[in-house]
Amino acid sequence: MTSVQLTDAGRIRIDFEPDEATMLADLAGQIADLITDAPHDSAFTRLFPPAYRDDSAAAAEFERFERAGLAEGKVNAARTVHAAASVGELDPGEIVEVELDDDDVWPWLTHLTDVRSVLADRLGIEDDDSEIQPDDELLTLLPLYDWLGWLQGAIIAALESLEVGEGAVTGEGGEAD
């Protein structure tokens, strides 16, 4: 089960089960592919919403000048997560330890937001009041969506505790701290 805690050096350490780390690495690869290869995918609009909803000319200009840089940032964030979460063969019971320093935290948070945005698109989640149909084949994605939200929240809580100088923040995947 995933845990998030602060190290004595002020880094954020995340311990993953091997299958969790593998899943994160796989998702990172899928997100990078989506950004670079699938601009007509409905989730692409979630990742790159119009900058100006009421001004199509301004939105087009923003997209022309900024989209490539935004896409590069998202792909680099996915690659950061992929590199950290990619594991080789592990012995049974081994955990995957990932330590995030100041340079790693924001790419991780960016990537987790991107993955959750894509999953929300796949699940048909438009807002907090969206209802998911129980017979939907994609319903199996809901626990993943929730777990990624928990992980993102735990990283943010650890960051906040660093800023106020509190002790370690620990948590178990899927449970609120």
Score class of each variant (00 low, 15 high):
137 E>L: 06
16 F>A: 08
91 D>Y: 15
107 P>L: 07
35 I>L: 07
31 I>R: 00
46 R>N: 14
132 I>Y: 01
102 D>W: 03
125 I>F: 14
24 L>G: 01
37 D>P: 02
18 P>M: 07
138 L>C: 04
120 A>R: 14
26 D>H: 13
109 L>A: 09
110 T>W: 10
145 Y>T: 01
105 V>Y: 15
22 T>R: 14
139 L>G: 14
88 G>I: 06
64 R>E: 09
65 F>G: 00
64 R>I: 03
125 I>E: 08
55 D>M: 02
121 D>Y: 01
119 L>P: 02
146 D>L: 10
111 H>E: 04
28 A>S: 09
38 A>S: 07
71 A>M: 06
124 G>E: 04
57 A>K: 10
129 D>I: 02
102 D>F: 05
41 D>R: 04
76 N>E: 03
126 E>Y: 02
30 Q>A: 12
108 W>Q: 10
104 D>K: 06
112 L>M: 13
118 V>P: 09
97 E>R: 08
41 D>Y: 04
134 P>Q: 01
146 D>Y: 13
43 A>W: 06
88 G>N: 07
126 E>R: 10
47 L>S: 05
145 Y>S: 01
95 I>E: 14
96 V>A: 11
100 L>N: 08
99 E>Q: 11
115 V>M: 13
66 E>C: 13
67 R>K: 06
105 V>Q: 13
101 D>T: 04
33 D>F: 08
109 L>I: 04
134 P>S: 01
63 E>Q: 08
130 S>Q: 03
128 D>N: 10
77 A>K: 05
133 Q>A: 08
71 A>V: 01
146 D>Q: 12
62 F>G: 00
84 A>T: 09
44 F>I: 04
134 P>Y: 00
64 R>Q: 08
117 S>W: 05
23 M>G: 03
112 L>S: 15
55 D>S: 03
45 T>F: 12
144 L>S: 05
125 I>A: 14
74 K>A: 06
87 V>N: 08
